[in-house]
Structure formats: structure tokens, C-alpha cells
Simulated assay, not measured.
Amino acid sequence: MAIVRRLHEAGITSEHAYAAAFASIGLSLLSWTASMKAEQAGVERADRWGIFVGEWAPTFFALGLALAGYEQQPPAAEGSRSAWLDDPRDNAG
């Protein structure tokens, strides 16, 4: 979860990730439409562009969920790790 912590420290919030997910959905439709009109390659090429950009949305939604979980955790004491970042297997008895 070091990536989530670094994103959070860089000022990126779950709302930013959710906004990026919705923007990528719109961009997917826009790229599909633009490819249909601008290229002579046909529907197959346009579909590939739309799917390529459309696959970003689940990634951004997942990052949003991870950031939301991180944001809900109480701040860890200096020098200690957040319980959210601990591996549950370490506590298994």
C-alpha cells in the first residue's frame, strides 16, 4: 500500500480518482466517436480505442476505493505504521 500512501501524501484524494474514472468514461466515448469519424480503419479500430481508454475507469475506481479506505484511518503515531497497512497474516496466531 505504499502507492496509496504516496498518492495521499502528494495530495491526491479519493474524489480525484473518482473524477478521473468518470472522465475516462467520457473520454472513451469521445475517442470512439473521433476514431469513427477521423480514421478510415473502420469500426474495429474505433472499438479498440474506446475499449483501451475505457479500461482506465476500473483502475481509477479501485484507486479511489483504496484512497477512501486510507483516508478513513486515524493518523498513525510518528514512527509507527498505520494499522491499515499492516499485513493481517502478521497477526494470525
Rank of each mutant, 00 (worst) to 15 (best):
S31N: 10
D47H: 14
A77S: 06
E39T: 14
E55D: 07
M36A: 10
G64R: 09
L67I: 04
R48K: 15
G54Q: 09
W49S: 01
F52T: 06
W32I: 03
Q73C: 08
S31E: 08
L67A: 04
W49T: 04
R48D: 05
G50D: 03
W56Y: 00
A38V: 06
G42M: 14
W32A: 08
R48F: 12
A66I: 05
W56H: 02
A34R: 07
R45Y: 15
A46M: 05
Q72G: 15
A34G: 12
W49E: 03
I51Q: 09
L65M: 03
V43H: 15
A77P: 05
F60K: 12
G69S: 12
F52S: 04
E44H: 13
Q40S: 15
L63R: 07
A34D: 05
M36R: 12
E71R: 13
A76I: 03
P74V: 06
A76M: 02
E55G: 09
W49G: 01
A41D: 14
W56Q: 01
A38I: 08
S35C: 10
R45V: 10
E44R: 15
A46R: 09
E44Q: 13
L67V: 05
V53K: 06
L30R: 05
L63Q: 06
P58A: 00
E71L: 11
F52H: 09
L63S: 07
A66D: 11
S80G: 01
L30H: 04
A41Y: 12
L67E: 04
A57H: 09
Y70S: 03
F52K: 08
A68Q: 15
P75Q: 08
G42K: 14
Q72V: 05
T33P: 00
S80E: 14
Y70L: 02
E44Y: 12
A57L: 06
E55L: 14
A57Q: 09
A34V: 12
I51A: 14
A62P: 00
G79C: 06
D47S: 15
V53I: 15
W56I: 00
G50C: 05
T59Y: 12
A57F: 13
A38W: 07
Q40F: 12
K37G: 10
A38Q: 03
I51W: 12
A76L: 03
E78N: 01
T33W: 03
L67T: 02
F60E: 09
I51N: 11
L63D: 04
I51C: 10
R45L: 13
A57C: 11
E39N: 13
F61N: 02
W49Q: 01
A46W: 05
T59A: 07
A62G: 00
W56D: 01
R48M: 11
G69C: 10
V43P: 07
G54I: 09
Y70Q: 01
